[in-house]
Design a protein around this nucleic acid. Sequence first.
DNA 1: CAGGTAAGATTACACTGTAAACATTTTAAC
DNA 2: GTTAAAATGTTTACAGTGTAATCTTACCTG
Lengths: 208, 208
Amino acid sequence: MLPPKIANKPYHHGDLHNALIAAGLALLNEGGAAALDLRKVARQAGVSHGAPYRHFADKQALLAAIAEEGFEQLVARLQIALEEAPNSFFDQLLSTAQAYVRFAIEKPALMREMFSGVTIERMTYPTLYSTSKTALNLIIELIQRGQEQENLIPGDPINLTLVAWSQIHGLAMLLVEKQLPHIADDPAAIDQLIRFCIQTLYNGLAQK
Amino acid sequence: MLPPKIANKPYHHGDLHNALIAAGLALLNEGGAAALDLRKVARQAGVSHGAPYRHFADKQALLAAIAEEGFEQLVARLQIALEEAPNSFFDQLLSTAQAYVRFAIEKPALMREMFSGVTIERMTYPTLYSTSKTALNLIIELIQRGQEQENLIPGDPINLTLVAWSQIHGLAMLLVEKQLPHIADDPAAIDQLIRFCIQTLYNGLAQK
DNA sequence: CAGGTAAGATTACACTGTAAACATTTTAAC
DNA sequence: GTTAAAATGTTTACAGTGTAATCTTACCTG
């Protein structure tokens, strides 16, 4: 008759810390940033509105944890995209870009929070910073392989990476922010645009 | 002894509509989006907190007006950049990109609001939409000239424009959101990165 | 100059984030 | 095991915030 006690979950709630992150993530994906208020998160997790403050200093700290979870999801997507892609640099670049943009379209509010450096001071949340860097490192390594195995121009791979990242991040965010209404509801057109971006990028980074 | 009556300014305040936009813009540039609350805007304009509702349906409407003003400022910058640049396509592209990124760095919170399609439904604010399109048209025309006068690849100029826009918008937003901390405080490094992005873009869009 | 209308001021209310005080459960020391 | 301490959760309280409703004032038109 006792509530089923799950192993390794301490204290009253079980694992309120993660439950709050999960609830916040759900609210964010459903109703956007406006729908994410602390009291609703607490209600959804089945605790009073004061309880979250035992696990997060303030709302920003919860947002940072949610953003970190977002980066973990993004990294997972990028890794799958890399594994599934054929072993050519161009295909891996394209596959990664597709995963990045599709993730952004799928979870626009989360994407927005993840990259809202204005509201979330990254240095205040070191684990968020390092997790986001994991995503960047994936691209750096990809570019490095491209420099070694293909005819990419030489130079600091970080610079090449920033160009590539800017290209694909720009496309992703323009879609997230609904700046491209003419193709917003046309997955095929979006795919064509991703392809065109990556083709242009590849051409531009290739040695002549 | 009467307050100085300014010509063409109706009713009590003078021009509260524009005063509110100006005050909001100032708060946004100083303290970021978090600092922009309606009551503070009203206080700064010297009216009660109920007054703004005679000019804007709600906070979003004011934000839309501020964003529109932002696009007007951006368009002005882009036009100056185009006029000042030498008459070569590459230089004009570079100059435009520099103006875009510098504007973003200078007024990050405004830039954020301008492109926050999630919070501001563009179709609800037609003048905002058309003003933002003016900025885009500048780039489309630039690309078209590049296709006519230089060796850019053929095809729908809109597609080329979206690639170029994504590239430079991505760079601008990564800087705005403080995702590139290593170069955030180094204008020379930023300038180098802009140049590298545009060089890569130009290479990629050029006919081989 | 009288009524109507536009602009602004007051008041009121629901909803947030968050701090403080209180209560309860778990953990740990003896 | 009993008990003190720490961790967790609840309640209460308060200051902002957006916004609706009502009241007041200034302007404008006949």
